[in-house]
Simulated assay, not measured.
Amino acid sequence: MSAVAHPPRLAVWKFSSCDGCQLTLLDCEDELLALAGQVEIGYFLEASDRELPPPYDLSLVEGSIATAADLERVRRVREQSRHLVTIGACATAGGVQALRNLASLPEYQAVVYARPEYIDSLDHSTPVSAHVPVDLELRGCPIDRRQLLEVITAYLADRRPDVPGHSVCFECKLRGTTCVTVAHGTPCLGPVTQAGCGAICPAYGRGCYGCFGPMETPNTRALLPLLRRDGVTEADAARLYRTFNAASPDFADAARQADEEGA
């Protein structure tokens, strides 16, 4: 007797994170209702306690790898998933918590926790791709709902998702937003940050602060003199590059350069 075919099975996994990227999926509302008829939710504790056995056709993974349990679990998720897509700055670049990579973990634990001896953490917060193969990284803090829906529907249709690799500057031009740096001297990471947010911050007169991480082949060091011209100190430039994507190699490189120039 042949096995009964089931719809593509979707799983959503949380590691070390704030849940914001999972909430982006839940906030899709009407689109989520239409999507629910096309997929079978195999695992998504943010939405339901229902759990179906693997394998999963598409796994969305939120959060960085910050504990030994995370490391063991993400390897198991990879084994159970046909496609694995990381969502958000934590999963793709270690997240805000990767700032601890810059100092001693015991020092952080002693400051934050009354009983640090009960805390079991790895020395570094790292992206998922540092430990298992990843099919696609979806950037943002949080991710953009339009990009998320594009990724899910693309995998349902067995095609590659159309996720841009160009900078936020392109999005400013597409929506007719005046460049805040040229017009007002506002510091902005738009030239080196990947598009996807819709250039929300520049549209409201503030500079991009890089929550989507680096674009393809960014020249992050070259932006440092421009940031200084607009009144950003070397220390502030380093903090700007480290805010959401501290473990991203391109942003980390520029932050180190800013530290050296400010020493």
Rank of each mutant, 00 (worst) to 15 (best):
Y155S: 01
Q147N: 12
Q109F: 00
V182Y: 01
H83I: 09
A254L: 08
S48Y: 02
R159N: 06
E117S: 13
R145V: 06
V151G: 00
D259Y: 05
F251Q: 09
R75W: 04
G207Q: 02
A66T: 15
R256A: 14
L105E: 15
P225R: 00
V163H: 03
Q80T: 00
V128D: 05
G190K: 02
G165D: 14
T186L: 00
C141G: 11
L136Y: 05
C90G: 08
G213F: 07
E31K: 04
S121G: 03
E260D: 11
Y155K: 02
L23S: 06
E72V: 11
E216K: 11
L174C: 09
F170Y: 11
S248T: 01
A103Y: 12
V180I: 08
S129Y: 07
S48M: 05
C188M: 04
T243A: 13
V61S: 04
A11R: 03
C201L: 14
L102N: 10
L149R: 09
Q147D: 11
V96E: 01
G205D: 08
T243N: 10
E107P: 00
P53I: 03
A36L: 11
A254T: 10
T24V: 15
A247G: 01
D259C: 01
A110N: 13
M1D: 02
R100K: 15
Q109W: 03
R160L: 08
E234S: 12
S121C: 10
A93L: 04
S17C: 15
L25T: 07
C208N: 07
V232D: 06
L84W: 06
C28A: 14
E46S: 13
E72M: 13
I87G: 07
A154E: 03
T153L: 13
E260L: 12
L148N: 02
E171Y: 04
S81R: 01
A89G: 08
D236Q: 14
T153R: 13
A246F: 05
A36C: 07
L45I: 00
C208A: 08
A114E: 15
A47N: 02
S59C: 09
T181G: 02
D70A: 10
S125L: 02
A203E: 10
V39D: 01
R73H: 12
Q147L: 12
G140M: 03
A252M: 06
Y204W: 10
R206E: 09
D162P: 03
G95L: 04
I200Q: 13
D236V: 13
L26C: 00
N245F: 00
C169E: 04
V151S: 02
V61P: 05
R73V: 08
A258M: 11
G262D: 06
G231K: 03
Y113S: 07
V232F: 13
P127D: 11
V232Y: 13
Y56C: 02
G42Q: 04
G20I: 06
A47T: 00
A130D: 14
E72W: 08
P54S: 07
Y113T: 11
P116M: 11
